[in-house]
């Protein structure tokens, strides 16, 4: 359902060309929980941005749910992103002057749902992450773990088929990280495909599959153990 073949991404300045991804190929099946690891600058975030259609790519093909992404214009990409992809970020990226209800409302607004349906979805999503009692709170009134749960609720409210998580526990202490990870696992068990970039080997180990990226290429995604050993080393 997500297939990348020979994806290339080059960042150019006047002086230098950086090959962020080179002949990057990957296939992710429906319902998978894939962890993406790799050293800093290896291309993990670029991969995630291309997957989420926030970045374009210079070569190769990318099929999302059978749709060739390359030929889509900005409006079509935005629509596809809104309907099929949910994002979770390391720094939560909640909008500080919107309360929890309005933060979760953001993707639903662009989806064009009715006010009644939006309300229902927002309440369900916040209930799912255990924050239904704090609809009117601002993000600044919540702990880091709670903020990340709101971000997850926001990502889930539109019922996307993919959840892209970029270091979702990077800013959390270990207890909160475990809680968030547990939540992601529950979401995955309910059928949402998750692709998670992480530096945390323990979290990566809990995924179904681990992809290790080095120098913009998939180093090994068949055998989990050697990758984790490298990561731990």
């Amino acid at each position: 359902m997500l297939q990348m073949n020979n994806i290339k991404k080059v960042f150019r300045t006047d002086l230098v060309e950086t090959h962020a991804l080179r002949d990057f190929s990957l296939q992710v099946e429906e319902g998978e929980f894939v962890a993406v690891t790799g050293p800093s600058g290896s291309g993990k975030t670029t991969f995630l941005n291309i997957t989420g259609m926030l970045e374009t790519f210079d070569g190769g093909t990318y099929m999302l749910d059978g749709q060739d992404v390359k030929g889509l214009n900005d409006k079509q990409r935005s629509r596809l992103r809104n309907e099929k992809i949910g994002f979770i970020f390391q720094s939560f990226n909640l909008i500080p002057d919107l309360n929890l209800f309005d933060n979760v409302d953001v993707p639903l607004r662009y989806r064009g749902f009715s006010s009644k349906e939006r309300k229902q979805r927002i309440e369900n999503a916040l209930e799912r992450v255990g924050l239904s009692a704090r609809l009117k709170h601002l993000p600044s009134q919540l702990s880091g773990g709670q903020q990340q749960r709101v971000a997850i609720a926001r990502a889930l409210a539109g019922e996307p088929r993919f959840l892209l998580a970029d270091e979702p526990t990077g800013n959390l202490d270990s207890l909160m990280a475990r809680q968030v990870m547990q939540l992601l696992e529950e979401i995955n068990q309910q059928g949402t495909t998750i692709i998670m970039v992480t530096h945390d080997s323990e979290l990566a180990r809990r995924a179904h599959r681990n992809i290790h990226i080095v120098d913009g290429q998939v180093s090994d995604y068949q055998d989990l153990q050697p990758v984790l050993e490298v990561a731990e080393a």
């Binding site: 989420g52 926030l54 900005d74 409006k75 935005s78 629509r79 992103r81 809104n82 309907e83 994002f87 990226n93 909008i95 953001v106 993707p107 662009y110 989806r111 926001r154 539109g158």
Partner: peptide, 16 residues
Amino acid sequence: APEVGVRRALGASQGE
């Protein structure tokens, strides 16, 4: 711009 980045990630088009 950071908020715009978030909105774009959540499905807002350039036009919106």
